Deep mutational scan, measured.
Amino acid sequence: LTELETIYVTKEHLQETDVVRAVYRVLKNCPSVALKKKAKCLLSKWKA
């Protein structure tokens, strides 16, 4: 997740890969609050 925060991701990348699905899975299933927060921030950033 940290690496995903530092790289530039285009909408095309998100549509062509399962990155969003994987990050969403972390948000829903990971017991770590810190990782959930990171995943939520990434998804919000990409949605904007």
Rank of each mutant, 00 (worst) to 15 (best):
L1Y: 04
L1H: 15
L1W: 03
L1N: 05
T2G: 10
T2D: 13
T2C: 04
E3K: 08
E3M: 10
E3W: 15
E3N: 11
E3I: 09
E3V: 09
E3R: 07
E5I: 04
E5Q: 04
T6G: 10
I7C: 03
I7A: 13
I7M: 14
I7Y: 05
Y8S: 05
Y8T: 09
Y8N: 10
Y8A: 15
Y8R: 09
V9C: 08
V9L: 07
T10K: 08
T10M: 09
T10L: 02
K11F: 01
K11L: 11
K11D: 11
K11E: 13
E12N: 06
E12T: 10
H13Y: 04
L14N: 14
L14K: 14
Q15V: 03
E16F: 12
E16V: 06
E16Q: 15
T17H: 05
T17P: 12
D18P: 08
D18W: 14
V19K: 05
V19D: 02
V19F: 05
V20S: 03
V20F: 12
V20M: 13
V20P: 08
R21Q: 06
R21Y: 03
A22K: 12
A22D: 07
V23Y: 02
V23E: 03
V23W: 11
V23C: 07
Y24H: 04
Y24C: 11
Y24M: 15
Y24I: 13
Y24K: 14
Y24A: 11
Y24D: 07
R25L: 02
R25D: 05
V26N: 08
V26K: 08
L27M: 06
L27K: 01
L27T: 01
K28H: 05
K28P: 05
K28G: 05
K28Y: 02
N29E: 03
N29D: 08
C30F: 13
C30M: 12
C30P: 07
C30T: 03
P31K: 15
P31G: 15
P31M: 15
P31S: 15
P31T: 15
P31I: 15
P31A: 13
S32D: 05
S32R: 11
S32V: 15
V33M: 10
V33D: 10
V33Q: 11
A34G: 10
A34R: 08
A34H: 10
K36A: 10
K36D: 02
K36C: 07
K36E: 00
K37H: 03
K37N: 08
K37F: 05
K37T: 03
K37C: 00
K37D: 02
K37Q: 03
K38S: 07
K38L: 10
K38T: 09
K38W: 07
A39L: 09
A39K: 01
A39H: 03
A39D: 01
C41S: 12
C41E: 11
C41T: 10
L42K: 00
L42F: 08
L42N: 01
L43W: 13
S44T: 03
S44C: 02
K45R: 09
K45S: 03
K45F: 14
W46I: 14
W46N: 01
W46L: 11
W46G: 00
W46R: 01
K47G: 03
K47C: 05
K47Y: 02
A48P: 03
A48H: 06
